[in-house]
Design a protein around this nucleic acid. Structure first.
Lengths: 146, 146
DNA sequence: AATATAAATGCAAATACTTGCATTATTGAT
DNA sequence: ATCAATAATGCAAGTATTTGCATTTATATT
């Protein structure tokens, strides 16, 4: 879907400076093509150039905030990142065992009584579901049955 | 509403041992009568007896898991706890400035396509809204206008 | 009252992530 | 190509919270 040139255009459009580290983060995520931890991204970049962990975190933040990346949080508070291929606001359902991510094309904000929201501005919505996917349930059944 | 004796009965019903520290945590929260950080609870208990921070966290966890306490998370990942006066599952709207908490008597899980949930078991719902309450908006306007 | 057992605690070390600040690199304008 | 403005980076120290393990305590039973 996306390639590095496209992502660089997106950075330009958002007035983000195109640094070697940023390019490396995006290249790493493109290669992986899947949800990845900050630690794994750090390892990837570090083998290619000098980089500090805080720089990785700061970049993952800005790239996520500008919609270039997408972030989900595991229940143990470890975050996963991937290139954002989806237009518009959405949420996720995450497997508690294998961390598989299912996209939920729904935002609960729309269902909240407007009277309540009336008194608040800049309302942000944190919403995620966590469960065990079918495959992990079955694996677990087998393990326990053994 | 609740007093310590009532809370002790709740602990007994849930087979939680009644330790000095647990009583102290609950007494502190009753005195405060409002959302409180783990740090503040730790300070309160520490002035009364020897206690380690990890014990505070472990107790806040178990007391929350058993429904005796209620927890909300600030956007910067600091948690607030209070005695749970509410029956049943619910969520919160939290002011990003003063941390005021509004109860949302709604769970978005009900609105999710059952076909999606069918493939997952033990689904838990993380849902919170964050915004600026009217008072904080006005204060900010004044500060900026000055 | 003595005791067995399971749960709670303290301690030390680890976790993921954040922040302040001085230095450096990218960018658009000359 | 040079340069000024601004954003990005590295470093060091900080944050809240968690975890493993050995010791202690609360509780139900005798």
């Amino acid at each position: 879907m996306s390639n590095l040139a496209e992502l660089e255009k997106m950075m330009a459009k958002r007035a983000l400076k195109q640094t070697r580290i940023r390019r490396s983060i995006l290249r790493g995520l493109l290669e992986k093509g899947d949800w990845t931890t900050a630690r794994d991204i750090y390892e990837y970049v570090k083998t290619r150039q000098k980089v500090d962990f805080s720089t990785i975190y700061r970049n993952l933040d800005t790239l996520t905030a500008t919609g270039i990346l997408c972030r989900v949080e595991r229940q143990d508070a470890v975050s996963y990142y991937t290139i954002n291929h989806h237009e518009g606001h959405h949420h996720h359902l995450i497997c508690k065992s294998c961390q598989k991510v299912v996209l939920l094309d729904y935002c609960p904000l729309q269902a909240i009584d407007p009277q309540i929201l009336e008194n608040f501005s800049n309302v942000e919505c944190k919403f995620d579901l966590y469960g065990f996917c079918r495959e992990c349930q079955e694996q677990n059944r087998n393990t326990n049955a053994k």
